[in-house]
């Protein structure tokens, strides 16, 4: 049996509804899908002078998808818009084991997911949505 994927921190994050829903006047919106299972994250964001000032997510999916979206939205508020693409890349590298460091400390709760390849996309689709929304917001993202 693998290490539990469902540690208490993931369960708690999955239940966090504090940034769930839609923003009234987002500057950008993006939706990312997991075609494997139909899970979907829609992410709205507002920006000001290159900084993400507000986010909200509507997530239809499993606990891992919801938890990752909640953690990401919590982290990204106040971060430079230009970080979105790097967060996406670093999240994938972390899950693939190419990097020992999670893209931000709170995402370390997802460590057990590394060993379960078929669930990586559950974690990363929120990052895909953020990267796309950030790109829509009109700023060139660093690689």
């Amino acid at each position: 049996m693998t290490e539990s994927l469902y540690n208490q921190a993931i369960i708690e994050a999955g239940k966090d509804k504090s940034h769930a829903g839609r923003l009234e006047h987002p500057d950008a919106t993006a939706t990312a899908d997991n075609p494997l299972c139909g899970d979907r994250v829609t992410l709205d964001l507002c920006t000001e002078h290159g900084t993400i000032t507000d986010l909200a997510h509507t997530t239809r999916g499993c606990l891992l998808t919801k938890a990752a979206a909640a953690l990401l939205v919590r982290h990204a508020r106040g971060r430079p818009l230009g970080e979105a693409r790097a967060l996406q890349t670093r999240a994938k590298a972390y899950l693939e084991g190419e990097s020992a460091e999670p893209p931000f400390a709170e995402l370390a709760v997802m460590a057990p997911v590394k060993a379960v390849k078929s669930r990586h996309d559950c974690v990363t689709i929120a990052f895909d949505a953020l990267a796309e929304a950030a790109a829509h917001a009109g700023e060139e993202q660093p690689k």
């Binding site: 469902y6 499993c62 606990l63 559950c122």
Partner: peptide
């Protein structure tokens, strides 16, 4: 409970 969580557990 989402189907994938059911299956994983």
């Amino acid at each position: 409970v989402h189907a994938h969580d059911i299956c994983q557990l």
